[in-house]
Design a protein around this nucleic acid. Sequence first.
DNA 1: TTCGGAAGTTGATTCAGATCAAAGTGGGCG
DNA 2: CGCCCACTTTGATCTGAATCAACTTCCGAA
Lengths: 255, 255
Amino acid sequence: MGQFFFDLDQDTMAIPSLTRVKCSECPIRHRAVCARCDTDELEVLEGMKSYRSFAAGEVILWRGEPLNFVASLVAGVASLSKTMEDGRTQMVGLLLPSDFIGRPGRKLIEFDVTATTDVTLCCFDRKPFERLVDETPHVAQRLMELALDELDAARDWMLLLGRKSAREKIATFIDMLVRRSQGTEPLAKTTIQLPMTRDQIANYLGLTLETVSRQFSALKKEGVVDFTDRRQFEILDIVALQEATGDDSDGGILS
Amino acid sequence: MGQFFFDLDQDTMAIPSLTRVKCSECPIRHRAVCARCDTDELEVLEGMKSYRSFAAGEVILWRGEPLNFVASLVAGVASLSKTMEDGRTQMVGLLLPSDFIGRPGRKLIEFDVTATTDVTLCCFDRKPFERLVDETPHVAQRLMELALDELDAARDWMLLLGRKSAREKIATFIDMLVRRSQGTEPLAKTTIQLPMTRDQIANYLGLTLETVSRQFSALKKEGVVDFTDRRQFEILDIVALQEATGDDSDGGILS
DNA sequence: TTCGGAAGTTGATTCAGATCAAAGTGGGCG
DNA sequence: CGCCCACTTTGATCTGAATCAACTTCCGAA
């Protein structure tokens, strides 16, 4: 689940709708599709880009819709999901700042893209962007790295969906949030924000919302976590939490 | 599940261990990582490559092992799988002829790679190959296409693992085999070969082998399929089969 | 040709998580 | 300020698939 992290810093989500940020000062400058670009290349991108904002809950793209633009996620959290005829839905990707939407060479999108929180996108029209990818190895290389990172994350997620118990799924999910916040914060931050509703978490983990709620309650009763709020909680026993994920204790790398 | 097809043509699997095939005559020439290469570029690859063979059941790479080479799968079927401490395993990828093993920029592999049938690989040492990727946009572009195709397949698979019933999983799996054989064969070929054991199918679909067996028996009793052999069966009612997959009847594209 | 073991089937039972149902909680808006 | 509605929790029950167990079939090697 390595790559699927939430940006919990509410401040960075506050980029107003039409403010134009210079690429060189962009918060995702060194992680997004433009990460490897030099100053000249950045200038080209600067001339092509436009910002778009979406409120939490808004659908950014419907499955089957023509993909007229591609985009980098600048701020907020978005999700990719697939829905069956009878309404069952499964999240198949979580987009965080610096993640990329769309793929060159494909005209239609295969899943719904929804804003989970308020979202700001840095958009490029598809045609010119495709031309750019062909001409700019730095962009193509970075795009490949992003795709491969997503693939790694998707594979961890497949193990979770196919083989983990409800408890292991929830523990893995919380552990992912913890690791993310440790990246952002100085040290041992044990207060965690949930960026989604119980229902969204259920769709993420292949569970029902009732099961998600029950597992949270169980972890609270056992003293592993404590909720200060429906959307915010503290980690009381990180060791017990990590044991409950079902993952290798060493974090997965052998030898 | 679009991209995950089996090569059922037993003949192409019979490439002997050390036979050296010229790139220009290679069966996967126009689908593999070298698909976009011109004659000059092909010559460079020709000088770098070496073949390796693995018998059905052999492990090609263990998780955590240093990734000294990358490779194209020339013939046979291989699987990527993750295993938990207590032995639960989940397949996270299925490699068919022209698929690629390894990723530039990563030194360790994150999952086990196992030969499902007898397998022939076209290998490149990692270091020189990485240099090649940086210098040859045609290779980098094709590598990205392959990664994005795998990502699409992984997302369909996530919906299957997270939300489909045992019956829907089995029906989806058989339907995938049917679509694949239609691609290879003239028309309406209704005899299908299973390239894996019940246990491997179970690990592929996130089920137990008993459940796989029971679902096959149920489909047989209902007259949807008929087994001529444990590894070979016929489709008697393709409409019923496709209805049982739980997928949109139109194949997934709306509007 | 028979023996042995791997692969597959089938049945009985159990159990985790889904489903159905009913209260609780809290935040935003009139 | 308080009402409403979306979100959440908790309980009771049901059920699909896992588990445990026994038996069959097939294939390959002695």
